[in-house]
């Protein structure tokens, strides 16, 4: 029993790293643009399909293929922000951005159905099915590689945010958009690039998700609701919070899964509700100065 729990904790941490990557993109977008990108889930699935096409049709290795899918997803993100989200202003912006990103999700989902049909797919590679035996734990290679890649990318995003001029502009915009604009930051450029980066990470998340789960165009809904729960639990806009919440939630789910696979995901959402009753701003959230 104890053995199983330890294994579940290790699994939870490894999978949590990958979820953290997708959640960081979502929370970054929220922090800068003050919107929730409902399309994030289906964008992850789109990333998975891109990897699928590259590996099945062109026989490009999953990790090598990221060199193509990451820039592609970045461009998709920039276009979404530039064409639609940028235009929304005013009191109903919260709801409107939600609807716009949801509409984008519907269009992407429908197009994926048209292109690939409803059958479940899974990405395959030699390292997807084999695993290494360390200290009595079975660790599939794909989880190890994915976790390592997630750590590297999140570290990269941290470095970008805290060590570069662009990062300073992003953080300034997150803190106070008006003030940032007043001191000469091009906030709309910051918003567009942030949206691009937030969506670009879904290429990596999608590849990992597609290698470790079977997916179809409809899989985005389950994913987005988990990601939303994670970023709310971590505190909206907080990258550290997204990391902590991903690992916490996925570990919890993975441990509960030993006893009751059916209820594991309910525990996931119940944890969200319980935490928010005690602490409405999440683990690391700042209380808003004056919520509207």
């Amino acid at each position: 029993m104890a053995r199983q729990v330890y294994q579940a904790v290790v699994d939870g941490i490894l999978v949590g790293g990958v979820y953290a990557l997708m959640a960081v993109g979502l929370t970054l977008i929220f922090g800068v643009l003050d919107i929730i990108n409902i399309a994030q889930g289906v964008l992850v699935i789109l990333g998975a399909y891109l990897s699928y096409v590259l590996s099945v049709r062109l026989h490009i290795d999953l990790f090598v293929g990221l060199a193509i899918t990451v820039p592609a997803m970045f461009v998709i993100g920039v276009v979404l922000q530039w064409a639609f989200i940028r235009r929304l202003r005013g009191r109903e912006r919260t709801a409107m951005t939600l609807l716009v990103t949801y509409a984008a999700a519907l269009i992407i989902e429908g197009s994926l159905y048209e292109a690939f049909g409803p059958d479940y797919k899974q990405l395959s590679a030699p390292y997807v099915t084999s695993s290494v035996h360390v200290l009595g734990f079975y660790l599939p290679y794909i989880y190890l590689y994915g976790f390592a890649l997630a750590v590297v990318i999140i570290a990269g995003i941290y470095a970008l945010l805290y060590r570069t001029r662009f990062g300073r502009s992003v953080r300034a915009t997150t803190q106070d958009e008006t003030a940032a604009r007043l001191i000469g930051i091009d906030t709309s450029r910051v918003a567009t690039l942030t949206f691009g980066i937030g969506v670009a990470v879904t290429a990596v998340g999608g590849m990992m998700f597609g290698a470790t789960n079977s997916f179809n165009p409809n899989s985005g809904y389950d994913l987005i609701s988990r990601l939303l729960a994670i970023i709310i639990l971590g505190g909206l806009g907080s990258i550290g919070g997204a990391l902590a919440a991903s690992v916490f939630m996925l570990t919890l789910e993975s441990v509960v899964d030993i006893w009751s696979p059916q209820w594991a995901i309910a525990v996931f959402y119940a944890a969200l509700v319980v935490v928010l009753v005690v602490r409405p701003t999440g683990f690391f959230g700042r209380a808003p100065a004056r919520a509207q």
Partner: peptide, 28 residues
């Protein structure tokens, strides 16, 4: 009583979470 303590985006997400809990209960 739980969800209306929070506002805006957080409220929206809690309603989504509760929705999924109910769907799951209907299955399970």
């Amino acid at each position: 009583l739980v969800a209306l303590r929070v506002r805006r985006h957080t409220f929206i997400v809690i309603t989504i979470a509760v929705f999924f809990i109910f769907q799951l209960m209907a299955y399970n």
